[in-house]
Design a protein around this nucleic acid. Structure first.
Length: 903
DNA sequence: AATTCCCGCCAAGAC
DNA sequence: GTCTTGGCGGGAATT
């Protein structure tokens, strides 16, 4: 009886599936999957044929093989039995999904129909298990295995559901095999953001064009027209809307590559978001499948090869739609057309959401799907120049090969991230790496020092030590003082080589953005602080209380902007307080002896990062955070007031001492200071002018959370020391602000806006718990972020100095600042990857407590994001270019994924 | 015939 | 090697 049913798919030719499935008429696939039992009543067809189901089988004999088999199986396997029970129960309950229970052959047969196994139904069942508005205090952990078992489905199906839910931020991945349920708590925000992004992309217009085209196509062929139309759109949008398409066009390889590599990370999620965007921006909230598919594909491509692509896209769209339907966000409808009716979906979900973000602020992202091969270095340079050189210009960077490369790297990272949901505790890794790092750091430091770069003095190679700097989120007031902006800035760290700019975000206090680094370096993390940007565009960021200072590594190339250099030096000097020395001395063990020269934590960190990076050249820190397509944005950085700088320095010094102490403790306990570094702080004094940001998955981070974080930062620090720094938990589960995607095009939108500040301030004042995402983000950033200030770097190749100093004058006013989008991807492990950062970046590592939950931070008020998995949250603040005031960004939390964009 | 979409192969990356 | 994740598309089920 048993037989393997042939697999249906034998791509290769005959591949026989090892798995066993049971396909009985009656039983739905309950047994499949892990159970592995299988039998088919029928012998199936050869390869390529799909096994027939139910009825057909039924025709054979419903009972016989299957039922018997089942019985046997169940007898043998309690697990199976349980499943069956569960199944029944489920059915009973809600939807009358009918039971697939085999008990009756006949009934089962009926029931078994495909519908019963539909993704929508499955999603329904899944949703029924969790409350729409979960109590954050409770454990909202979702274990995929459990769910799959309970729902009696293959895991594969669960992934589909989770990906869609994740795109709406209804769940977030906490670890391998684990997700955290958020329910609809973030839905409104997410939708608001998606709407904005969609608007920015001008999806509605695109849809119009496509519709027209479709109509036209019927009669005449127009390939060219399309392009023209597209071009028009692009002009308006700044192109980002169409970027995807462009990508496709490029080498032509993209597609292939993509298919090969496939798994473009989480494309389903990206698709899901975009699909939702389409609804949100279209006026009659109706979107037909074909139009959606075309937009999602980038329709140009469609021309050719892409029938298949289109079909595949449509399939996926159905998958997504089914989940969305079960979420009651859309409904299936049909649109009448000349030729008949076309399948379409209508949005029935919430229609008005608080407009959290300014449209301008939002950024758009493009999916990085394309992974074209790019030229390595050259492209990187070009990219930097082209992209960043002129802040004002908005071009679609996506097309640039270098961009593609970036996208690719991002994807890779994402993939890694995704695939490896590492457990939260990766601290283990650190030790091993550390040893290498030390050596590497040394070498690199030496080299770098030779090169140029550090504006700050590189104290000593020894500094390599992990600089753990306690993050202190500057209090709001502090932040304000320093920057004059109530809101912290976001900063972006870029690698030396890479181009990066920071973008300020209005929406959320902090928006971390990860940028892919071009060269081996990891992605950049950027935090934007909307308010800060606004407030003082010119002012330079100061190292905030965070005290981390950025260091520039490298940079041979660029020269830092003049102003920056001065400022930098200044800060550097200040920065290195006695505490630093202490650190050094302690750290000295690792590396070269420390000197009196004011070593800075930042330097140390950078060095470390760099070293690490070297060690991990291959594995770049991933820009995990980005889900969406990466896009790049140019943002002019704002300058931060210098005045505040000094003040901030003082604070910094104070904190440094604390940090030092902490570090000491850590060393004592840990092999490596770096180990377990969870939080990073980046300061960017300098402001990068432009930023490239990959757009992707959006994850909102609330300013409030940031704020709250700041408020508590001190406490946290203290706690950290005591608690081992375990959690930097900023994140408390409060609602994050929505993230936006940013596209390069958006950049132009940017405006230096001082006016906005009031809002920002208000927001800042709100207390929100920091979103956990932020923490995660930060962590990621650690590895990812390059200290170099992209903007400045790119914009001004010449700025070696900027890197070092906190201050870097921004050539351009803060244009971008306003909004920041964040895409957060859940990272589980916190690896901090160090990248060489040309610019100043301050990182602070806090040891992660293994498995420690975020809540560790002493801040009671905030409930942590409960993370099922313990991920250590990282907080990072980055300043890149310096000018912008220092704002501290803290990101709580463990996973992230998000990228944001903004315009 | 067209639409819908289940199913599971298989690649990628983490262990 | 195993396991997790998820792209992908054949082709069955439905309409």
């Amino acid at each position: 009886m048993v037989l393997n049913n042939g697999d249906r798919k034998h791509h290769d030719g005959g591949f026989v599936a090892p798995q066993v499935l049971v396909k009985t008429t009656k039983t739905p696939k309950t047994l499949t999957g892990s159970c592995g039992v299988l039998v088919d009543n029928q012998i199936t067809m050869g390869p390529l044929t799909t096994p027939k189901k139910g009825r057909e089988v039924g025709s054979v004999d419903p009972w016989t093989p299957t039922s018997n088999l089942k019985m046997l199986i169940s007898a043998a396997s309690p697990e199976i039995r349980n499943r069956e029970k569960e199944l029944c129960m489920d059915n009973d309950g809600r939807d009358s999904l009918e039971s697939t229970q085999p008990e009756n052959g006949e009934e089962s047969e009926k029931m078994i129909s495909r519908k019963e196994k539909s993704l929508g139904l499955l999603c329904h069942k899944f949703l029924a298990r969790y409350p729409d508005y979960p109590n954050p205090a409770l454990n909202n952990d979702i274990c995929l295995d459990d769910v799959a078992t309970e729902l009696n489905v293959e895991r594969r199906r669960i992934y589909d559901i989770m990906n869609v839910l994740e795109s709406l931020h209804m769940v977030s991945r906490s670890a391998k095999n684990r997700y955290t349920w958020h329910g609809r708590t973030k839905l409104a925000e997410t939708l608001a953001i998606l709407k904005q992004v969609g608007e920015e992309h001008q999806y509605s217009q695109q849809m119009q064009q496509i519709r027209q085209r479709l109509v036209e196509k019927e009669f005449d062929f127009d390939g060219e027209e399309k392009e023209n139309e597209v071009a028009v759109v692009d002009l308006e949008n700044g192109e980002h809307g169409q970027k995807e398409l462009f990508f496709v066009e490029l080498p032509g390889v993209e597609f292939k590559a993509a298919s090969v590599n496939s798994r473009k990370d989480k494309s389903l999620r990206v698709m899901s978001q975009k699909f939702v965007m389409l609804f949100l921006v279209s006026n009659p909230r109706v979107v037909s499948l074909d139009v959606a598919a075309k937009i999602l594909i980038g329709e140009d491509q469609a021309a050719d090869q892409d029938k298949n692509k289109f079909k595949t896209k449509v399939r996926r769209l159905y998958d997504i739609a089914n989940v969305l339907r079960s979420l009651k966000l859309i409904e299936k409808v049909h649109v009448a057309e000349e030729r008949g009716r076309k399948p379409a979906f209508e949005w029935v979900g919430p229609d008005d959401f608080p407009q959290v973000i300014d449209s301008e602020n939002t950024s758009t992202a493009c999916p990085p799907k394309k992974k074209g091969v790019l030229e390595p270095h050259a492209s990187a340079d070009n990219c930097a120049k082209n992209l960043f050189s002129s802040p004002g210009t908005k071009r679609s960077f996506t097309r640039h090969p270098s961009l593609i490369k970036l996208a690719k790297s991002i994807q890779d990272d994402r993939r890694k991230i995704n695939s490896a949901p590492s457990s939260p505790v990766k601290s283990n890794d650190f030790p091993n790496k550390m040893a290498q790092l030390a050596a590497i750091c040394k070498i690199e430091l030496d080299q770098e020092s030779a090169n140029t770069g550090y504006v700050l003095q590189l104290p000593t190679p020894t500094s390599v030590e992990p600089s753990h700097i306690p993050l202190q989120p500057p209090t709001q007031e502090q932040a304000v003082n320093t920057t004059a902006n109530p809101i912290p800035h976001a900063m972006l760290a870029a690698q030396p080589s890479g181009s990066v700019a920071y973008i300020p975000a209005q929406c959320s206090p902090l928006i971390p953005v990860l940028l892919p680094q071009q060269r081996g370096s990891g992605p950049y993390a950027v935090y934007l602080n909307p308010s800060s940007l606004r407030s003082n565009p010119l002012a330079r960021p100061q190292p905030t209380s965070l005290a981390v200072r950025s260091m520039t590594f490298e940079d041979k190339t660029g020269q830092s902007p003049n102003g920056q250099s001065a400022a930098k030096s200044h800060t550097a000097a200040d920065a290195s307080p006695s505490g630093v020395k202490r650190l050094r001395s302690e750290l000295a063990s690792e590396g070269s002896p420390s000197k009196d020269t004011s070593p800075k934590l930042c330097e140390i960190l950078q060095a470390r990062l760099k070293a690490r990076r070297v060690g991990q050249l291959t594995s770049r820190p991933s820009p995990r955070a980005l889900h969406l397509d990466p896009e790049f944005v140019n943002t002019p950085g704002g300058a931060v007031a210098n005045q505040t700088l000094e003040q901030s320095l003082e604070l910094l010094l104070d904190r440094e001492e604390k940090v030092v102490e902490v570090l000491k403790e850590l060393q004592g306990s840990e092999d490596d200071l770096l180990v377990g570094v969870h939080s990073l702080i980046f300061f960017c004094s300098t402001l990068p002018i432009q930023t490239l940001i990959p757009a992707g998955y959006l994850i909102p981070i609330s300013q409030q959370s940031l704020i709250s974080y700041k408020e508590h930062s001190k406490d946290c620090i203290n706690n950290i020391q005591t608690t081992e720094l375990t959690s930097f938990t900023l994140s408390t589960g409060s609602r994050p602000a929505p993230a936006q995607e940013i596209t390069p095009t958006n950049l132009r939108l940017q405006r230096p806006t001082n006016a906005a500040s009031p809002q920002a301030t208000q927001q800042a004042h709100r207390l929100n718990s920091p979103s956990p995402a932020i923490l995660n983000f930060t962590l990621q950033n650690l590895g990812l972020i390059s200290s170099s200030s992209p903007g400045s770097a790119f914009a001004t190749p010449q700025t070696p100095e900027r890197a070092n100093t906190l201050t870097s004058p921004l050539p351009s006013p803060l244009t971008l600042q306003q909004r920041a989008m964040v895409f957060i991807k859940p990272l589980s492990p916190v690896h901090i990857q160090q990248t060489v950062s040309p610019h100043q970046v301050a990182l602070i590592g806090v040891q992660q407590p293994l498995m420690a939950t975020p809540k560790g931070s002493g801040v009671p008020q905030h409930s942590f994001f409960h993370t099922p998995v313990s991920l250590s949250p990282l907080a990072a603040v980055v300043n890149t270019a310096g000018q912008s005031s220092i704002k501290t960004v803290h990101i709580p939390q463990r996973k992230l994924d998000v990228t944001t964009d903004e315009s």
